[in-house]
Nucleic acid binder design. Sequence first.
DNA 1: TATTGCGTTGAAACGCGTTTCATACATTAT
DNA 2: ATAATGTATGAAACGCGTTTCAACGCAATA
Lengths: 325, 325
Amino acid sequence: MANIREIAKEAGVSVATVSRVLNGHPYVKEEKRNAVWEAVEKLNYTKNINAVHLAKGKTSIIGVVLPYLNHPYFATVLEGISKEALRHRYHLLVFQTNYDVEKELEALEMMRMKQVDGLIICSHVADWGVIGEYKQDGPIVLCEDVRDQDFLSVYIDHYEAFTKALRYLIQKGHRHIGYCIGRTTGANSKARQAAYYDTLRQIGVEPRKEWIFDRCLYMEDGKRVIHEWMSLPEKPSALLVSSDQVAAGIVLWGKKEGVKIPADLAIVSFDNHPISEPLQITTIELPLALMGKKAFRLIYHYIETGNIARKTEKLSVRFIERSSV
Amino acid sequence: MANIREIAKEAGVSVATVSRVLNGHPYVKEEKRNAVWEAVEKLNYTKNINAVHLAKGKTSIIGVVLPYLNHPYFATVLEGISKEALRHRYHLLVFQTNYDVEKELEALEMMRMKQVDGLIICSHVADWGVIGEYKQDGPIVLCEDVRDQDFLSVYIDHYEAFTKALRYLIQKGHRHIGYCIGRTTGANSKARQAAYYDTLRQIGVEPRKEWIFDRCLYMEDGKRVIHEWMSLPEKPSALLVSSDQVAAGIVLWGKKEGVKIPADLAIVSFDNHPISEPLQITTIELPLALMGKKAFRLIYHYIETGNIARKTEKLSVRFIERSSV
DNA sequence: TATTGCGTTGAAACGCGTTTCATACATTAT
DNA sequence: ATAATGTATGAAACGCGTTTCAACGCAATA
C-alpha cells in the first residue's frame, strides 16, 4: 500500500505539500494540488489513520463505558451520544463492562494509552478515587449525579424525581410503598434509596426491606417482582419501579395473575418508554437521549477548546400521569 | 509523558529489551526485566497504543455497522458481538448509519485506513459491488443471507422462517394474510417478501399491496398498523409481523380499540423478545445474540489465522406457539 | 578441539502522517 | 527604490513501539 512519500515522489512534490493538499491547507499552487490528487488516484492511496493518530496525539474517538448494550436505558443514552458524535465526525468505542471493575479500568487505561480522547461513563462500579486518577489523561464525563465529586457530569436528579413520585403516591393515599431498583450500589440507585427513606420517614412510615426489589432491569424481572409481591404476607399498595420495562413486566404478568392495577397495586415508573403508553403506566420521562447528547457535547467542547464551559448539568424530568395509580 | 526510549535509558537497556519485557517475550535476564519494570513504575509509563497500531499494522478493533443502536434487534446482535469481542480482548467501534449510504462508506473507508481490522455489517443499504471493493482491505462479515454473493456471513434464513410462519397460518385456516416489514429493501426484507409472494401464489391467493405495512420497527409502529388495519375496507385475518416490538404495539393498541386477538386478527411475529411471552404472541425466535457471537468468531478466526474456516453459516430458528393465532 | 546451538542484547530500520522552520519569490506599502 | 507582507515549498524532525539482524557469550555435541 502506497504511503505519503510515494505520493510525493509520484507527484514530484514534497511530503509536506502532499499533507497540505490532503488536509486542504492553503498555500499550494493549483497545479501541484492537481498533481497530488492525480498521484493519489493513480496509486490508489489512502491515509493510514494510525499514523495520523500517532502524529496528532489524538484519535477523534470517544470511549463509552456502559454495563449493557441491549438494555433500553443504556441503548438510548448510547444512541444520543452516537447521533451527536456523528455530527461532529467523532467515533465511538464501546466498552461493555457488565459492571466488572476490570473492564472499567481497561477503558480508563485505554484513554491513558491515547486510544480514546475522552470517556463518557454511563454507569460504573469503580471507586471515584480510582476513576479520578485518570482525569489527567483526558476528559471524563459521568452520566450520574456527582455533584459532590469533582467530575464533569450530565445527570438526572433521581432524588428529586423519586421524591416527586413518592409524594404523588402519598398524596393519592398510599402509605405502604415499595420500590424496584436495578442495583443497590451506584449514585443513581443510592439517590433513589435516600429519597425513599427520607420521604417515608417524613410521613412517619417505617421503610420495609422486604418491599425493596433489587436487580430489576428487564421485563422478566417484572415477572419475578409480581410473584414475590403476591407471596408477601403484607403487601405494599404501590410500587415505584426503576424502569418501564420492569413496570410493563409487572403489569402484564400481574394481569395474568388477576392483579388489578391500580386497585390492588399502584405503579409509577420511569423512562416513558413507548410501552408505557398502551399499558397506561404513570411514568416519569427521563431525557436519556438528551443526556447522551449533552454528555458528548460537554466532552467535545472540552477537547476542542481546552476549557470547561459548564461542569455539570442537571436535566429535568417530566411527570406523565396515566392510570396506573 | 515518557516513551519507550526514556524507559530504556532509565533501565540501562535497549528499547528492544524494553519492548520484549513489556510484551512478555522470552530471552531477557531476570535483572534487566526487573530494571525495566522499575523504570516503568518510576516514570509512570504507559504505551502509546497508536504507535503500537502503526507499528503492528493492526488495531484489534472491529467495526460494527448498524442502522440503529436503541432497537432491540440490533442492540441484541451488538451485545452478542460485544461479549465475544470482550473474551478475545478486541474492541468495538460502532458505526450507526441510520441507513445512510455515506455513513456506511465511511465505515468501509475506516477499514481501508486501518482504523479497524474488520467489519461486521448488521444491515446496510450500499450496493454489494461497492462493499465488495473493500474486501481487499480486510474481512467483512454480513449478518444477512448473502449466499449468492461472495461474502462471509452468518444469517437467519428469513425466507424459510417466513414460509414456515405463513404455512402455519394457512394451515390454521387463514387465507387473507398481510405482513409488516422494517423496510422494503435489504436482503432480509426481500427474502421475506419473496416468501410471501411465493407461498400465497402456491395456494392460489393473490397478494395484496395494501396488506403490506412498511417501516415497522418500533412499538409505536404497531399502533399505526392496527389503526391502518382497522380502516381497511377488506381486512386480512392474519398478520406476519417483523418483530415482537411491533407485534406488541399491535396487540396492546388493538386491545384498546377492542380488536380481539386472534379472533379478529391473528399474529405471528419474530424475535421471541421477553415481551411476547406475557402477551401470548406466537413468535419465531431469532438467535440474534448468537448471530453476533458467530459473526465475531468468523472475523476473528480469519484475522488470527488468515484463512476462512467456513464462509457462511445459517442459524436455525425456533417456532414458539402461543395463543395469538 | 572444533562445531553447533541456544540464550541474550542492542543498533537500526520500519510503519507513516504532521508540523515546524528556513528559504525563495512575488507583491504591496512607504 | 526599499522595506514589509504574503504566497509557496521542501528538508528534517517528531510522535513511538515493533521487529529484524548481527553479534557475543557460553554450553553441549561431534
